[in-house]
């Protein structure tokens, strides 16, 4: 029961996010708006109910299951890439490699930098 109550809260926040997106034409999905609203609400309240914690945990643990039907789509759209396969694969593989490298190096050096400045304070 309590798990369902938590799920209802998640659904309501999602619907609220969707409503905001549709009414104010925000280019961000209802889910992400709902996530932001959820975090802000919890920060204001200062605590998470057990019902909400357990149902969010349950949904997060099956995240992979939820994205699977979409992932399978890759195998059924090969023809769409035709002719530009090489450019697309290079962009995806090399591009992602570079952006992951950029993120890790940037974040690593920033963390070191801010740790040093805090130590100096």
């Amino acid at each position: 029961m309590s798990m369902l109550r938590g799920f209802l809260i998640l659904v309501l926040f999602f619907l609220f996010g969707e409503a905001l997106r549709l009414v104010f034409l925000i280019p961000v999905s209802g889910g992400v708006l709902g996530m932001i609203l959820m975090t802000l609400t919890l920060m204001l309240r200062g605590r998470v109910s057990d019902a909400l914690a357990s149902s969010s945990q349950a949904l997060i643990s099956i995240l992979v299951l939820l994205i699977m039907p979409g992932v399978v789509g890759v195998f059924f759209m090969a023809s769409q890439f035709s002719g530009q396969w090489l450019a697309v694969s290079a962009a995806l593989l090399l591009g992602t490699f570079l952006s992951v490298l950029t993120t890790l190096l940037l974040m690593k050096s920033m963390v070191r930098l801010s740790a040093r400045s805090q130590a100096n304070d």
Binding site: L10, E18, G31, M35, M38, S55, S56
Partner: peptide, 9 residues
């Protein structure tokens, strides 16, 4: 959708 909201927790 609700799973994305759940990431807020």
């Amino acid at each position: 959708g609700p799973a994305t909201v759940a990431l807020g927790i």
